[in-house]
Amino acid sequence: MSGETQNGTIHLEIPSDFRWLDVLNASLMAVAEEMQWNRDFTNEVSIAAIEAASNAVEHGNGMDATKRVCMRIRVSGGKFLLGVCDDGPGVDPSVLDRPLPSPDDLSLRGRGFSIMKALVDDIRFLKSPDGRFLLELEKALPEPGEAE
């Protein structure tokens, strides 16, 4: 086990359909097993990743299965990095400043970025090399032997 994704980055591309998010989850589970991540870390990364990718499927690409969601997984420099790109116009960065709806506020939406923000260390809004919207999540890896 090297602690890094050998040979660089794992690239995935799926149609914009929730069914294919299994591909991302299975890949993350494989990386988690290879890197021997603890259960809490794996759970947190997986929840944030599925949230990011489902946003791309639903909001970025409007669930148009002819549009592709691309993802890249990288473990490097003591960090987990996930990039998710879609064909949408992007996200207003101020979404990260919105507070989590209070428990009494049973709004149906508005919690996605709060979930991601709680589970990863940094969220960046970028452009991919081909000009598509790219959401990047970063989370420091747990220390070896860190308790769950």
Binding site: D22, N25, S46, I47, I50, E51, S54, E58, L106, S107, L108, R109, R111, G112, I115
Partner: peptide, 17 residues
Amino acid sequence: VNWINSTGLGILIAGYT
């Protein structure tokens, strides 16, 4: 249930409400 996202959470909230 394999997993749920924030929109799915909204589905449960709508049902509860």
